[in-house]
């Protein structure tokens, strides 16, 4: 876990503590009122507890004012995989070929074939080509083949409006923020992996060292400071677009306005918030 992540989390846990203290305050207030003492405490605590929504977790950041969304223009992606490596570095993702917060899929139609050949950077041949499970590249296996059509599709957490992963979490350790991001409280996750099962997109992965589930946060520690997610930041071709839907001038608002977009597996009812341009029927 990165330092920034830890900071966000420690702030979150402070918030939990603050809420607890607030509840304690209400309890104290009631008790105080009952015995006719401590009316001052009741007043002081009563005022603060009037706030229904928990206050923003990050200074100068109001999560009620944002609505984050992500766009992927698959026609631009060149499969360089800088995004995958940047994500791993930024977020301390397990350094092997089986744990990713984001990845890139390659779809190749050969002449005369109806179904696409699909692989990702974690494919054994691609790992062999890169020579490491820490650096990623697509191999050149189609060099001599007659390729009819080929394209790359970046994948990441869809931060769904109705996330199945949040629905099935038995403790509430994974939750949805007001600004539309699905996060995990690593200090509360019991590691049952029900959420890993429930995600139709396979974006959740298990951190075996910490014994908790992990996932893409859209770099919540960055976006709440006005920065772009790491994968967006490093993309050399602007295949990844991120922004605030509440802001009509944001890149994502323009992306959604100017393109006919689709989402992955809409039939699940999860209502994803990663919008795609230029994907094919084979992509799921």
């Amino acid at each position: 876990m990165s330092q920034q992540d830890k900071k966000v989390e420690s702030k979150e846990s402070k918030l939990v503590r603050r809420n607890f203290l607030k509840m304690l305050g209400i309890g104290t207030a009631c008790a105080g009122a009952l015995v006719g003492t401590g009316s001052l405490v009741a007043k002081a605590q009563g005022t603060e507890s009037a706030t229904a929504v928990p206050p923003p977790k990050i200074p100068d950041y109001d999560w009620n004012k944002h609505k984050w969304a992500f766009g992927v223009d698959a026609t631009r992606c060149i499969g360089c995989l800088r995004c995958v490596e940047a994500c791993k570095a930024e977020n301390g993702v397990t350094q092997d070929a089986h744990h990713f917060r984001t990845w890139v899929e390659r779809y190749v139609y050969l002449e005369g074939e109806e179904r696409a050949h699909v692989d990702s950077q974690s494919d054994a041949q691609n790992i062999a080509a890169s020579g490491s499970e820490k650096e990623f590249r697509f191999d050149n296996r189609y060099k001599d083949a007659k390729v009819e059509k080929a394209f790359f599709v970046p994948k990441l957490c869809n931060h769904c409006t109705h996330p199945a992963c949040v629905q099935v979490c038995p403790t509430g350790a994974t939750y949805q923020t007001k600004d539309g991001v699905v996060l995990i409280d690593h200090s509360y996750c019991i590691g049952c992996q029900y959420c890993v099962q429930a995600c139709p997109y396979g974006v959740r992965e298990f951190n075996h060292v910490m014994g908790v589930t992990d996932k893409c946060t859209w770099c919540y520690h960055r976006i709440t400071k006005g920065l772009q997610p790491a994968c967006v930041e490093v993309c050399p071709v602007e295949a990844r677009v991120f922004g605030d839907r509440n802001d009509p001038q944001s890149p994502i608002s323009a992306f959604l306005r100017n393109n006919r977009v689709s989402v992955l597996k809409p039939e699940t009812g999860n209502a994803p918030n990663v919008f795609y341009v230029g994907i094919d029927k084979e992509v799921s």
């Binding site: 070929a97 089986h98 744990h99 990713f100 990845w103 899929e105 699909v118 692989d119 990702s120 950077q121 974690s122 994948k155 992996q193 890993v196 099962q197 997109y201 396979g202 974006v203 959740r204 992965e205 298990f206």
Partner: peptide
């Protein structure tokens, strides 16, 4: 065939 990269770590 093709499986999502994270799926190779079987959860249950």
């Amino acid at each position: 065939g093709y499986v999502y990269p994270n799926e190779t770590d079987i959860p249950w």
